[in-house]
Design a protein around this nucleic acid. Structure first.
Length: 570
RNA sequence: GCCCUCGUAGCUCAGCGGAUAGAGCAUUGGCCUCCGAAGCCAUGUGCGCAGGUUCGACUCCUGUCGAGGGCACCA
């Protein structure tokens, strides 16, 4: 169904078109009325006519009969107040719509590159944002009707693998697997690193092993596979704990592109883009400079003939465009890699590998900071393991549940604590503008009051409790009279999901959807406070139950596309 | 030195070129014989600084101060 906002917007567009084709009505929500159109003033400026006169002309041409009343205010604002009969018909249509007003988009294939941990290295807070934001974007895109291909570009190749394989051999394969399978990737990696730094013989073996790996020695490859498979199994456990949709099938690591790297170099050369500089094969995309103001290279092949990450990133672009047939490619990668990816995209465009029709964007995000506003670290100065983070949140949720008193126990209680913990962590991450750094404060994010994941879950659980008491009888047919102000405010909130969702997705900013959901939850709790549901009677009771039903469904849907559960009871 | 991002209330954060800049937390004061008070209602304070563009600027541009990041073979 066409959304309320879109219905109004298109009517306004027609009216504006009568004065200037394509003039933007600039329709926004308003605190003066339900919606306001701000487009008159800029149009008047362009036409060289007085704004009030233009406003009059727009209103003359505007057909919103049965939808809204219009008032001209101030210098030329158009304030629109929706008719109750219109709200009623919208809400009734919404009740029968499983998608709650959000239309299916034109089908597109969207490749989303996110999470990207390293084999034989711990997943730590540094991976949190990519994983959480990427997964939310994946879910939102899927719900919008797009085909999502997730790509977990794990670090599974490169010089560290010589040292890691040698360490595996030193430990003995069984012992190494045992260590890795309990998830102690951190210990494993660090021990290898320490030996590498301190022991020249080990260092020598490691280097030889890298050569063996790169030349495809079967036994070395087998050992490498052991590391990779154990790591992927561990990552899957972490994803399950976070309720992230990534699976082992989504893992397409750097090594996947090995066979394509020669082709990248060859084709860049054939295109006349490749330049040898200081022994390395480089492309110099325009507009990038180094410290000395000289052109900055994207190094495709290093002076030792090895391939850098730029080569595999370029190969990945080609693979995603040509093989996966991506319409859109998103890289959920942190701010430090902005320049690198800009250069990769620039080179891909220069080489003609990245057509204009393919939207290709880095979804940049800021750092996770500690309360001291420095990079989030443990007390010992180590980066914090993701599993530790989640476990602490679960423990905290457990304590809070006990304090509040809960009917649940055993598995059900633990499951709920997990749901709350995930909601706290994910919502805190998703609800701030992603490009900003944010402060990780478990106490605040898991609090059940305020703008938090658990608060939204609570709002949902409260609505659901009404239906438990009512005996689950949502009225099949309700009319919305919206006599109380709180009912009307809630209704307007319920009708605004489509634009909140599509704006959030279009800008790749999940926090916009979070803001919407929090606002909706507040509208609901105000309504809940002011308008008794179960003790009211007849048509009023039906109406209020229907509002509750829509609210619950909307909160559940909104949270689910963010990757957050909405428990029935808390 | 050059480039990028960011400076909004005591704290954590929203803010789409539009009317008096909003939430949450914290503060203070109200509200439970009534559907979950994990809530609701009320309460004061602020756009780093200086210019410019515009009918209109937190938003765009320039400069400046401050914080973070990047700037040739690690990803």
């Amino acid at each position: 169904m066409t959304s309320t906002y879109e219905t109004l917007r298109s009517r306004l567009q027609s009216a504006f078109n009568a004065l200037e084709v394509g003039a933007d009505p600039a329709l926004r929500t308003s605190d003066r009325s339900d919606y306001q159109a701000n487009g008159v003033m800029s149009l008047a400026k362009r036409l060289g006519r007085p704004p009030r006169e233009v406003a009059d002309a727009v209103v003359q041409a505007l057909d919103v009969e049965g939808l809204a009343s219009v008032e001209i205010a101030g210098p030329g604002f158009l304030n629109l107040t929706l008719e109750t009969s219109f709200l009623d018909s919208r809400l009734r249509a919404l009740r029968g719509d499983a998608r709650l007003g959000i239309e299916m988009g034109v089908e597109r294939r969207v490749v989303i590159d996110y999470s990207a941990p390293n084999v034989a290295k711990e997943m730590h807070v540094g991976h949190l944002r990519s994983t959480v934001i990427g997964d939310a974007l994946a879910r939102m895109n899927r719900f919008a009707g797009h085909e999502v291909i997730a790509r977990n570009h794990v670090g599974d190749w490169g010089t560290p693998f010589g040292m890691l394989i040698e360490h595996l051999l030193d430990l003995g394969e069984d012992q190494a697997v045992a260590t890795l399978s309990i998830g102690d990737l951190d210990g494993f990696y660090k021990e290898a690193r320490v030996k590498f730094e301190a022991d020249d013989a080990f260092k020598g073996r490691s280097r030889a092993r890298v050569v063996a790996l790169q030349s495809g020695d079967p036994e070395t490859l087998r050992l490498w596979h052991v590391l990779v498979n154990e790591s992927i199994a561990y990552f899957s456990e972490v994803y399950a704990k976070l309720d992230v949709t990534l699976t082992p099938d989504d893992v397409v690591g750097e090594s996947y592109y090995n066979d394509l790297l020669e082709g990248v170099v060859h084709d860049l050369d054939a295109a006349g883009l490749l330049v040898e500089s200081e022994g390395a094969l480089c492309v110099f995309p325009p507009g990038f400079q180094n410290r000395e103001g000289q052109p900055l290279p994207l190094i495709v092949q290093k002076s030792d003939d090895g391939f850098g990450y730029a080569a595999s990133d370029l190969a990945a672009v080609r693979d995603r465009v040509n093989v996966l047939r991506a319409d859109e490619m998103l890289y959920v990668v942190g701010a430090p890699q902005v320049q690198h990816l800009e250069m990769v995209f620039a080179v891909a465009r220069l080489a003609g590998w990245l057509p204009e029709r393919v939207r290709c964007e880095q979804v940049v995000f800021g750092n996770v900071l500690g309360k001291d506003h420095k990079m989030f670290k443990s007390r010992e100065g180590q980066s914090v393991k993701l599993v530790t983070l989640i476990d602490e949140a679960i423990e905290r949720a457990y304590v809070i549940l006990d304090e509040r008193g809960t009917d649940l126990d055993g598995d059900a209680k633990f499951h709920l604590a997990e749901q709350i913990a995930r909601a706290a962590i994910k919502y805190a991450d998703l609800s701030t503008e992603r490009q900003h750094d944010y402060v990780f404060d478990l106490e605040r994010m898991i609090a059940f009051e305020g703008d938090t994941g658990p608060y939204l879950q609570y709002a949902h659980a409260r609505v659901r409790s009404i239906f438990r008491r009512a005996g689950d009888d949502t009225p099949p047919d309700a009319h919305f009279a919206l006599a109380e102000a709180a009912e009307r405010e809630l209704a307007l909130g319920l009708l605004a999901l489509p634009e909140a969702f599509s704006a959030s997705l279009a800008a790749l900013q999940p926090h916009r959807l979070c803001t919407y959901l929090f606002d909706l939850a507040q509208r609901f709790t105000s309504f809940y406070d002011a308008c008794p549901v179960l003790s009211s009677e007849g048509a009023l009771r039906d109406e209020r139950l229907a509002l509750c039903d829509l609210t619950a469904r909307m909160l559940r849907l909104g949270l689910s596309v963010l990757g957050i559960d909405a428990p029935e009871q808390m």
